[in-house]
């Protein structure tokens, strides 16, 4: 397939960019994400996660079940900052972010 084909629709990362990241040592979706922004757009890798893992599997020869999943964080779906901040005394935005930090999941 044409290497300029988009894989991550949101951040518009193509096959070539993903393969280059793998050449540079990326082994997981998250490695590729850190090198290219692939999967960091508004859908948060919901659309590109399988196609990207298939490229990793094909390129490295690793079976698909050994290619790890992208790390998921809250919020699971797009939510506006104002919505998170609304009614924050009810332990909302504080606990969402506060607990993440405490857990060392920065």
């Amino acid at each position: 397939m044409d290497k300029s084909t988009i894989v991550c629709r949101c951040e518009e990362i193509n096959i070539d960019e993903i393969e280059t990241a793998i050449k540079n040592g990326a082994e997981t979706f998250d490695d590729i994400k850190r090198l290219t922004r692939c999967g960091m757009g508004p859908c948060q890798s919901k659309t590109c996660f399988y196609p990207v893992n298939e490229i990793i599997a094909e390129y490295t020869g690793m079976p698909l079940n050994e290619v790890s999943l992208p790390r998921l964080r809250m919020p699971l779906k797009m939510v506006r900052m104002s919505t998170l901040a609304q009614d924050s005394e009810g332990s909302n935005v504080v606990s969402v972010f506060g607990e993440s930090v405490e857990d060392g999941e920065s």
């Binding site: 949101c10 951040e11 779906k77 797009m78």
Partner: peptide, 17 residues
């Protein structure tokens, strides 16, 4: 956002944005 290419409905299910 980056390449300024046309976009439309893809999943119609609130996932792909």
């Amino acid at each position: 956002r980056k390449l300024n290419k046309a976009r439309g409905v893809f999943c119609a299910n609130g996932r792909c944005t």
